[in-house]
């Protein structure tokens, strides 16, 4: 599914390398988690894979089902089946959430040569998915993320994920800013999308999200590289001993 090979990337404006050779393979249906201290390059990995501006890829490759993502615009990557749930979902005043969702869904369908959803079919679908995430009609009507609470923003990310039905979902610190109940709701939304084929990459600082979204593999990232990989027990080790011990051990 997703293959990241020796990915090295720098900030465009500072000539500072952030990713120093990331290797990661995620197969269909797997859930991987990346953990690591602040500044280790977790979020940067997600941005570079999704195609955010401001980074230069120095070396390496990223493919999704064999397609070279690095040569694609962000919208093409999305149409190819990639989805990034943002750590800080962007507020867009003046663009209605519904308009946004419908434009996104139909853009992807169009890009894939599928028929666009008509208004009625779209509405039915979005209501059904929104209900499961406790997103009410009022929230759908409001401008994208404007005036949303932290929890509402994250639920809105998951709603987009549910509507777009990507193959590969990256969740960038989706647990940040969430209370326990909100985190449960978000995790339920994610788990509902686990169907044995769809893959997930969960980026987080803390073990607690992984109690709800159970990973198959856990990777520890430090200074722009994945330094240790293992099973779910690795996350517990982090939780109990912190990163310092683990990183010393690796060094």
């Amino acid at each position: 599914m997703l293959n990241i090979k020796n990915l090295k990337a720098s900030l465009e404006e500072e000539d500072k390398q952030i990713l120093k050779g990331v290797d990661l393979t995620i197969n269909a249906g797997e859930v991987h988690a990346i953990m690591g201290p602040n500044g280790s390059g977790k979020s940067t990995t997600s941005y570079v894979v999704a195609g955010k501006g401001g980074y230069v890829v120095d070396e390496g490759s990223v493919t999704l089902d064999g397609q070279d993502l690095l040569n694609m615009e962000p919208d093409e990557r999305a149409a190819a089946g990639l989805f990034l749930a943002f750590q800080y979902p962007v507020e867009i005043p003046g663009v209605g959430n519904m308009t946004f969702l419908r434009t996104a869904v139909n853009s992807q369908r169009k890009a894939r040569g599928e028929e666009e959803l008509n208004a009625a079919a779209f509405l039915k679908l979005v209501r059904e998915k929104a209900k499961a995430l406790k997103i009410d009609a009022e929230m759908l009507k409001r401008p994208v993320n404007v005036g949303f609470s932290g929890g509402e923003k994250k639920r809105n990310e998951i709603l987009q994920m549910a509507m777009l039905e990507p193959k590969m979902c990256i969740l960038d610190e989706t647990d940040s800013g969430l209370d326990v109940d909100a985190m449960k709701l978000v995790a339920e939304g994610v788990n509902a999308l686990r169907d044995g084929k769809r893959s997930f990459l969960v980026i987080t600082h803390y073990q607690r999200l992984l109690d709800h979204i159970k990973p198959d593999f856990v990777h520890i990232m430090s200074d722009g590289k994945i330094v240790k990989s293992g099973g779910p027990e690795l996350a517990l080790e982090v939780e109990n001993n912190g990163y310092a011990d683990l990183l010393n051990e690796v060094a």
């Binding site: 943002f86 962007v90 867009i92 996104a104 992807q108 777009l164």
Partner: peptide
């Protein structure tokens, strides 16, 4: 145009021109 907003829209599959249009119309909406 707000680059973060552009990236957000494009990351959802919306092509650049269309994302730009959405942001232009949003800007005027006030």
């Amino acid at each position: 145009t707000d680059e973060n907003a552009m990236f957000y829209l494009m990351s959802r599959g919306i092509a650049k021109k269309q994302a730009q249009d959405l942001l232009v119309l949003a800007f005027l909406d006030e």
